[in-house]
Amino acid sequence: MAISGTQSQRGGTHVSAAEAAAAFERRETRTRWLLSAPALITLAVASIGPLLIVLVYSFLQKNPNGGVFWQFSTDAWFNVILQRDIFDDTLQFADAHLSIFWRSVKLSMGTTVLALIFGFPTAYFIATRPERTRELWLFLITIPFWTNLLIRTFAIQEVIRNEGIVNSLLLWVGIIDAPIQMMFTDFAIMMGMLYVFLPLMVLPLYASMEKLDFRLVEAGYDLYATRLQVLRRVIIPLVKPGIIAGSILVFIPSLGAYVTPRVLGGGKSLMLGNLIELQFGQGRNWPLGAALSMTLLCIVMVALLVYVRKTSRQGGAHG
């Protein structure tokens, strides 16, 4: 205290206050970064850093024995959409890749639409339950979400296999006399993804429906709207943020799905995730795998960006 006394006599209080504040600020900043450091370092080593390496790899030359040659090349990116004909050296669209891209987008969209068709009434059902039982219904939706994805996929497989429940039942009743082939089809993949990602649609939908002001619904009926009109003109517009959030939350993991198409699609029905894996396995084309990964990442980022833009605009429109 004596020191500060002389300080204030010498330099005037002006400087010491500002200095103390600055020193305090510096300490705060240091503490914050020290506290964040372990998380940031872990993420840098095991998430963000490796992603950058993937980006680098996508610009390298492939080593046919696996791995890469450290030589700059844009071949991989080229190969994502185009391929050079072995015979006449002309450029063609890489049909194999594009069809898998297309299938992934198609199946993901299909899954999203199905999830919306099933999820919307379910979320609405939960949101309109009495306070006491609502928690229980919500819990029932959450449970599958936190249980192992592989096990859930396995469960679906057991249902739709040729020797599975559905076929056995139909055979036993005598409706069919040969099992219906459901495994290893696009249908199987879509069912599987619907099954595993459905809670991701229901939860955000529920969150926005829970906030729904039912006096507005009453107002709708008061103004002669039928049930369907109230649904279309009042409820759906009001819960639109939930619809968008749920759709994005289902679409993104569907697009990058790996386990479900691997188990239910077998080797036949590939999706983007399996195509990527293939490049690191049998394909031995790491740069192409890297470029495909980056492409998938870009699509996801664009979807997220659209989502952020949409929701922030929505927020603005409401004031």
Partner: peptide, 17 residues
């Protein structure tokens, strides 16, 4: 909070720090 300028004294002693 820290003052941006000036000083605070408690019983005659500067306490900024």
């Amino acid at each position: 909070e820290m003052p941006t300028e000036g000083s605070i004294l408690l019983e005659g002693e500067e306490v900024a720090h």
